[in-house]
């Protein structure tokens, strides 16, 4: 028996909006530690890893480890029917072939049950070792989303370079070039407006903007985004999910000729 009750149901709504365009079908894994997902996009260029820790749920019952295959578009359609202030409960029977999403209005005067068929998805699970990064940039998520959006109107790849000057986002296309430099800025009123750059050594990598723009759909989840770079590894773009977890996007670099 699985029963996960999330008072801040809007978090789950936002999580689905963040991943439904990148990944079609995925297995949600439920264990004592939490509710997680790891899936690659269809071209195997990007990977998303989600973790919602059990402590973040008001009620978390997971009798046995369970893996539930779901079509993320259909799941998003059902979660769209939940109000932003609704309590969302995910329920499933062990060995069952459906999952139920229950939405309760804050005043408990409206209760909705949406039942969805589960799918058999044989997904490849990748081992992602903890890594040391050459540079880690923490910045306002809206700022990062704006940069990716603006640059994608000029070119289709972005070179992200971190030097002691700051972090530079560059692109070039048929109409010209664009360079945006963000400097460290910790003298801000609100901590979420800060840009913090930890650089072990300078690094510069090239990525497809199409994927970066897809990742920024997670912007509503968190005021901040963390971008971790290392020249031998995919970039990791991470958005925290309230105090209960995170959504991490991994993107393999491009080799410029």
């Amino acid at each position: 028996m699985l029963e996960l009750r999330l008072v801040q149901g809007s978090l789950l709504k936002k999580v689905l909006e963040s991943v439904k365009d990148l990944v079609n079908d995925a297995n949600f894994d439920c264990s004592a530690t939490g509710f997680s997902l790891q899936a690659m996009d269809s071209s195997h260029v990007a990977l998303v890893a989600l973790l919602l820790r059990s402590e973040g749920f008001e009620h978390y019952r997971c009798d046995r480890n369970l893996s539930m295959g779901m079509n993320l578009n259909n799941m998003a359609k059902m979660l769209k029917c939940a109000g932003n202030d609704d309590i969302v409960t995910i329920k499933a029977d062990d060995g069952g072939d459906t999952v139920t999403f229950m939405f309760e209005s804050p005043t408990q005067d409206k209760i909705a049950d949406f039942e969805m068929k589960l799918m058999d998805i044989d997904s490849e699970h990748l081992g992602i070792p903890e890594a040391e990064f050459q540079a880690i940039v923490r910045m306002p998520s809206a700022e990062f989303a704006r940069i990716c959006k603006d640059l994608s109107s000029i070119g289709d790849t972005v070179v992200i370079s971190v030097t002691k000057e700051g972090v530079k986002f560059s692109t070039r296309g048929d109409i010209g070039t664009a360079n945006i430099v963000c400097r460290q800025n910790t003298t801000v009123d609100k901590p979420e407006d800060a840009t913090v750059i930890e650089m072990q050594e300078p690094v510069s990598l090239t990525f497809a903007l199409r994927y970066m723009n897809s990742f920024t759909k997670a912007t509503p989840l968190s005021n901040q985004v963390t971008i971790s770079l290392s020249s031998e590894l995919p970039v990791v773009v991470e958005y925290k999910v309230a105090e209960m977890g995170y959504i991490r996007f991994y993107l393999a670099p491009k080799l410029e000729e």
Binding site: M40, S43, H44, V45, A46, L47, E124, H125, L126, G127, I128, T157, T206, A208, E232, L233, P234, Y250, L251, A252, P253, K254, L255, E256, E257
Partner: peptide, 14 residues
């Protein structure tokens, strides 16, 4: 332009 690498070139399936 340029060669897009795959994520599976960096992380092995478990």
């Amino acid at each position: 332009r340029g060669v897009q690498l795959n994520i599976t070139e960096f992380y092995r399936s478990t």
